[in-house]
Simulated scan of single mutants.
Amino acid sequence: MSRPTDPAPYFSLHVFVCTNRRPDGTPRGSCAGHGSESLRDYLKAKAKEAGLKDVRINSAGCLDRCGLGPVLVVYPDGIWYGFKTHADIDEILETHLVGGGRVERLMLTPEQGR
């Protein structure tokens, strides 16, 4: 919760993409094992191409939703997405990061992954 004396945010949106890697065969799996690193790179390139200077795309360690991976979370919105393809990333970029909407088919609920 922001306060009146807080400075303005440096970024309007901050996207954390899980790029955690566990050894192959680990029961929980890992987002990197499902291609999150290349998908993160794709998202970064597409955000730059779209001119989103006030949106930051970052790698994150384990976000603890491994079985749903790859996953990302958008703050300050607190919206979580599971994604698998460039088309999923394109939809998140256009609908959420550019348009301010939500990609309901990719959204994760708090109950998922617990």
Rank of each mutant, 00 (worst) to 15 (best):
M1Y: 06
R3V: 07
P4F: 15
T5N: 13
T5L: 13
D6H: 06
P7N: 12
Y10E: 12
S12D: 15
L13D: 14
L13S: 14
V17G: 02
V17H: 02
N20Q: 09
R21L: 14
R21H: 10
R21G: 04
T26D: 15
P27F: 10
P27I: 07
R28C: 15
R28Y: 11
G29N: 11
G29E: 11
S30A: 12
C31Q: 05
C31K: 04
C31I: 09
A32V: 02
G33P: 03
H34E: 11
G35A: 07
S36V: 09
S36G: 04
E37P: 04
E37N: 09
R40A: 14
R40S: 10
K46M: 12
E49N: 01
A50K: 11
L52F: 13
R56C: 13
R56L: 15
R56Q: 15
I57R: 03
S59N: 13
A60H: 08
A60V: 12
G61Y: 15
L63H: 07
D64A: 15
D64E: 15
D64T: 14
G69F: 06
V71I: 15
V74W: 10
Y75N: 13
G78Y: 03
W80D: 01
G82K: 07
F83L: 03
T85C: 10
D88L: 08
D88Q: 06
I89W: 00
D90H: 03
D90V: 06
D90F: 03
E91W: 01
L93G: 03
E94Q: 15
E94D: 14
T95N: 04
H96I: 10
G99P: 02
G99I: 08
G100E: 08
G101Y: 09
M107I: 06
M107C: 08
L108G: 01
T109N: 05
P110K: 04
P110T: 05
E111T: 06
E111L: 07
Q112L: 12
G113R: 08
